[in-house]
Design a protein around this nucleic acid. Structure first.
Lengths: 202, 202
DNA sequence: GCAAAAGTGTTGTGTCTACACCCATGT
DNA sequence: ACATGGGTGTAGACACAACACTTTTGC
């Protein structure tokens, strides 16, 4: 006794640019594609957003929409790069369709949590960066201040960051040249799995 | 250009009984219900499993099944209680439909992670319990040893457990009577949110 | 008294924040 | 020289695991 309903796939694609967390929109709404019979959800997602540019993708949530149709939302993350498409700061977006704002909030919350105990940062950062630049990304995504000193040490200790050879020349105002870093892995890894209740050592 | 497909809701309902993590089955498969037009996913879930007995529910994942239909799985948790329905230990279940084993594994993984940084334990534990009994629940769900001493201290420090008045009388072999505890909250709370990268104190 | 089970005291370790200090560059 | 931004050293707070020890019961 199963009825049939249409299914939509929505993309919540986030990036950090100029110190602001931005979401990609299409015609004033989250990019979407209808699911066709027999295809996987990822196929429909690829029709909704340019999935090649995404450094990380994960499913967020499935919900029944107001009209009665179903929608599955995905979180996509990509480096700050340059302009292509309609990017808007996540703060205070007016006129979104019902439910879209909640999905953006869910994506932000997920990102925020995973920044703390995984290496997701790789998906928002460029290939090479200074600690200051990475700090800007973390500040924008976490929405609280982050000390460059401690960010450096935490991520290096966890083996998340690797030092590169070059140095970044200082700007016109001077200052010591900054070391360049990269994320050691471009795939999601849990770096702090058992913050508590970890298994016995032996 | 959206086709229509049938949608199924599956329940991965877990409990701990006699020191083993068990999943509820119906006819050798995860309990399921077809989604009817216009109804919420939770309504269909309630048709698949007895949702009143669940102390905690959360969505797991939506996937395209082999036949081309869609399925959304929910994780449900309940206290160990007594027998009603078909409960099987999660380890090595033979003959499940394709995909069901992976969903059970996903539910287990989710439970395992949340036991470490939330108070989900409340959903698996009875109303009142001793630390030893709670330890059995954690051991079964985490699949590694847990020290009663440290479990006690961690959960009390976090404010997750509250001491009750009574004592549990020792068994025939003697021993000091055990204090009774309860979870201070019956709703999911994150108790260790910023294990790392926590916001500045001032 | 002795074994069994529960609970507390204490030590050591690791990870984090905070802050003082040192380094390398531009003007 | 001095301002600016980058990086290291170190101290203190905190949470945890591990283990010795004490408490309270049954036999």
């Amino acid at each position: 006794v199963t009825d049939s309903t249409s299914h939509t796939v929505l993309g919540v694609v986030l990036r950090v640019r100029d110190g602001r967390l931005e979401v990609q929109l299409a015609d004033g709404a989250l990019p979407a594609a209808g699911l066709r019979a027999g295809e996987g959800l990822d196929v429909a997602l690829a029709r909704a957003v340019e999935v090649d540019g995404l450094a990380h993708v994960e499913q967020l949530e499935t919900r029944v929409l107001e009209g009665g149709g179903l929608a599955t939302a995905y979180l996509g993350l990509r480096p700050g790069g340059d302009a292509d498409g309609d990017w808007q700061p996540v703060a205070g977006l007016p006129g979104l369709p019902p439910g879209h704002a909640a999905l953006i909030a869910a994506g932000q919350a997920r990102l925020r949590a995973k920044l703390s105990y995984t290496n997701v940062g790789f998906a928002l950062a460029p290939a090479a960066f200074t600690i200051s630049e990475l700090r800007e990304v973390y500040v924008a995504a976490l929405r609280h201040d982050v000390s460059a000193t401690n960010l450096h040490r935490v991520l290096v200790r966890r083996g998340v960051l690797e030092r590169l050879d070059g140095l970044r020349a200082p700007g016109r105002t001077g200052g010591r040249p900054a070391a360049l870093f990269q994320f050691s892995t471009q795939r999601l890894e849990v770096t702090d799995e058992f913050a508590a209740l970890r298994p016995p050592q032996r």
